[in-house]
Amino acid sequence: MNRIGRRWVAAFGLALMTAACGSGGTTDEGEEASPIKRAPTPESEFTATEIEETLDALVAEINEGAIEPMQMAILLKALGGFFTPITTGANRAMSELGVTGNVVGPSGTGGDQQQRAEAQNEQIGQAVTDGAEGIGISPFGDAIAAGIDAAVADGVPVVTLDTDAKGSKRSIYVGTISEAAGKTAGETLLKLLPGTPGTVVIHGNVHPSWLDGLNRMQRARDVLEKAGYKVVVRQVTWGPNGEVDDVAEMRTFIETADPPVVGLLGLHDISYRCAMAAEAAGRTDLPVVAFDYDLKTVEYMRQGLIRATHTQRQYYAGYLVPYILYGIRTIGLEATKKALAPQMFDESRLDVGLDVVLSTKVDEYNLFLDSLGAAQ
């Protein structure tokens, strides 16, 4: 463990003791509980100082009122991989708050999207039955709106994270905002491109059935087209033949586009396929910008075939949710939103932002994730 990490772990241990002493509102002797204190986050060029400052403001508002015991549940679509940093952040926040709660994965791994949503609705109902006073959830789509609305009707506020259920009565969504993410990604690639004319390949979503993916692609496209570039989009595909098909079509774009391709931008976790296409076309000189932090993406970054990627700050999303639920319970929803205002994208969505990681900064970023215990 590096020196920063050791100092942070020591501070975190102290914060846990403080949180444990402060839980329950008052001590057995009737004394007032200690105010909530957050463990200091390790200092790094990747530390999200704007989120840190916003959280400190929320904690200050909470500490002005009564410190109360609380039970909450955090329900995630998975506990490993992409969700590992979310789990770490949520558990850490609940420990600092001294609340009762746990992070729970899906009740099963089988079934289609609708069946998983139905199982998640049952999880919400069970959490309410078990006494949860606040629920954080990464939903399997809008199909869980009924479960969320039932919890809210029972007086249990719900905060969504990672994915949203916009048609529900959830209080706040916490995570990446697709519109903002697409704009940032387009601007990152734009800095690496030569002057126009030229064609840019985007590996993204064009189907309106997936609105978040469409919004992300469209905002990136807007940035590049406004700068004078022609944009062609390869529809991102999953499934057994997805990689082969994606790489083949993007290679064809590179070899035949008029004007010639000058860069590629991937907007999802499999965007390393852009680098594979450039390599297949013999154009490893082309700037490639990716999204998320898949192991293959990191490998291509180390080779210099991907110049930068965008990570979604999953740790911060997980860390924020318990604090927001606690704020809603103790100072109310409107006061909580007011404290969170610097990070609110609109009335009900909080943008955790993105980390733009250059290929020359992979080791530094890994050290930052390790210091948080948030490597995925």
Rank of each mutant, 00 (worst) to 15 (best):
A220E: 13
E179A: 13
E249P: 09
T49M: 11
L286I: 11
V174E: 04
I148D: 02
P259G: 10
P197N: 03
G263H: 05
E243C: 10
S138P: 03
V99M: 01
E31Y: 14
A275V: 07
A375E: 05
A257I: 13
G353R: 01
T49C: 11
V232C: 08
V156I: 02
A227W: 10
Y293C: 07
D269N: 14
R92W: 02
I324G: 02
T237F: 14
V247W: 07
S107V: 10
G101E: 04
T252K: 10
I36R: 03
H203S: 10
M94F: 10
L264Y: 04
A78R: 08
D28T: 15
W8S: 15
I67S: 07
A339Y: 00
P106Q: 02
N102K: 05
G134E: 00
G30H: 04
T256G: 08
G263I: 05
D56E: 08
V158S: 10
Q218H: 11
T84W: 03
T311P: 03
S107L: 11
A10G: 14
V158A: 05
P157I: 03
P40V: 01
G98H: 00
S271M: 03
H310D: 10
M94K: 01
D245C: 09
A181I: 07
R302Y: 03
V158P: 02
A375L: 11
P240F: 08
D245S: 12
T109R: 12
Y319M: 05
G136M: 04
G13S: 15
W238H: 14
T188R: 06
A227V: 10
A60G: 09
A277P: 09
N2H: 15
G353E: 00
E32C: 06
Q120D: 05
K361M: 10
A180K: 08
K191G: 10
L189M: 04
V233W: 14
A39P: 06
I74E: 03
A20Y: 14
G167S: 01
A90Q: 00
P35R: 07
E45W: 13
D164E: 12
A335M: 04
L264Q: 06
A165H: 02
G24E: 05
A93G: 05
D351S: 09
E225L: 09
M250V: 01
G182T: 07
L14C: 11
T160N: 05
A119N: 02
Q312C: 08
A375I: 12
G327D: 08
T100H: 07
A185C: 14
A280V: 07
V156K: 01
I51N: 06
G353H: 02
P322L: 02
G239A: 12
V357E: 12
I328L: 07
G239F: 14
R234V: 14
V236S: 14
E31C: 13
S271K: 14
R92P: 00
T184C: 12
A150I: 02
Q126A: 04
Y365F: 13
I51Y: 06
G182A: 06
E255N: 11
G373D: 03
D269Y: 15
A227L: 11
A15S: 15
G182I: 07
